[in-house]
Design a protein around this nucleic acid. Structure first.
Lengths: 140, 140
DNA sequence: ATAGGTGCAAACAGTTTGCATGTAT
DNA sequence: ATACATGCAAACTGTTTGCACCTAT
């Protein structure tokens, strides 16, 4: 009888999981790499790609497709929610709640099964108290 | 006095414009290339990338970011609308109308300036009269 | 005639894969 | 001890750029 394939608990995968958990917002592969690299010296980008993939397969991570930013990743199992993409600091935040209505007329014969909503604007860090955006670290 | 830079009306750019106009839905660079190539023999992909970029600069084209499909392009100047991505044939359609409400609570200090809504499901071609999707040409 | 446009190939950037080595189990 | 995981480099894919030639003006 074949032994079950066991996923190993390695330093690098642990660091990658912690980066995602600690962020509180969806991260790009690049951001995960940078965060995990601070913990693990010599970490390779390929390991990040592979780990993210396996975490997705495990159902521990969920992909978030944000228009214009490629695929980001957040912890799986959250309630239905959408995202906010700050056009100033380029961070993506989670928003909770959603008027599950999304009143868009569908042409006859079309059936929608899910929807994706992304808001764009400036986040609280970038637009302090009514002023114009403070020149926030324009990360990359 | 410097002479104004004039954009030339070449066969290839004309074919590219016609592909976009005739489609009636947003196209990917690849789709534009395929369509235009049917008209212009020997058309190079670089020309498509360059032409799309110049049409964007001219304000003749607008980019459409559809999560999971990269950037598509549609004619500019349309009314506010959103998109439908068919998970069966992978085509993207325009939907008209939008409940400009989009009732998502924003955290304090966040300011939204625009939003993007994408619906996913099966289009009329792929789900005929209440049945299960007819195995539509699963284009790539 | 001239300057912008085109095709081709090389250059790039992001992601994946093969392989020898490392390391949880 | 064994088999999965890692790091590195090569391979790929999608997009951009340099350059000699072409062509709308």
């Amino acid at each position: 009888m074949a032994r079950a394939i066991v996923e190993r608990n390695t330093r690098q995968k642990r660091a990658i999981r912690e980066a995602l958990q600690g962020a509180g917002r969806p991260l790009s592969t690049e951001e995960v790499f940078e965060a995990a690299q601070r913990e693990i010296d010599g970490l390779g980008i390929a390991t990040v790609y592979r780990s993210i993939r396996s975490l997705l397969d495990d159902g521990w991570l969920a992909p978030v497709e944000v228009p214009g930013k490629g695929t980001l990743y957040e912890l799986a199992g959250k309630d239905h929610h959408h995202h906010f993409s700050c056009t100033s600091c380029h961070r993506v935040y989670e928003l909770d709640g959603c008027d599950s209505g999304v009143a868009v007329r569908l042409p006859k014969g079309f059936q929608a099964s899910r929807h994706e909503v992304t808001l764009y604007g400036t986040c609280a860090n970038c637009v302090p108290a009514g002023g114009s955006p403070k020149r926030a670290a324009a990360r990359k």
